[in-house]
């Protein structure tokens, strides 16, 4: 196997690469390729940023009260609706 990766080979390993799941030799080849290839650098950086943006979305606002109400009724647990949900 050649020591030089092409862009297409890099792309097929890019997901494992950003997860840190590649063997050290392939990692080294990818890092080597990245020092020489501006396009792949951009692809990797924007891929990392994409995952990062999705992972840091705000959320966790808690379950809307009316949904909790309907859920407890559906499960016939309505007598416990007023206990502290914390």
């Amino acid at each position: 196997m050649s020591d030089h990766l092409d862009c297409q080979q890099l792309l097929s390993s890019i997901s494992d690469f950003v997860d840190g799941e590649l063997n050290p030799e392939l990692c080294r080849q990818i890092e080597q390729h990245l020092t020489e290839c501006e396009n792949c650098r951009i692809v990797i950086n924007t891929l990392r940023k994409t995952i990062d943006l999705y992972q840091h979305q705000p959320g966790d606002e808690g379950l809307p009260q009316e949904i909790r109400h309907r859920l407890f009724h559906r499960l016939h647990l309505e007598e416990f609706l007023n206990r502290d949900p914390g």
Binding site: C7, Q8, L10, L11, S12, N39, I42, V43, N45, T46, K49, L53, Q57
Partner: peptide, 25 residues
Amino acid sequence: TSSNDLILADWCCLPEDELLSEESR
């Protein structure tokens, strides 16, 4: 997953308030 038609804009440098705006979300 072909490298031929990848978009190569480097938008990582955009400021946070662009990346995290309501519209972006």
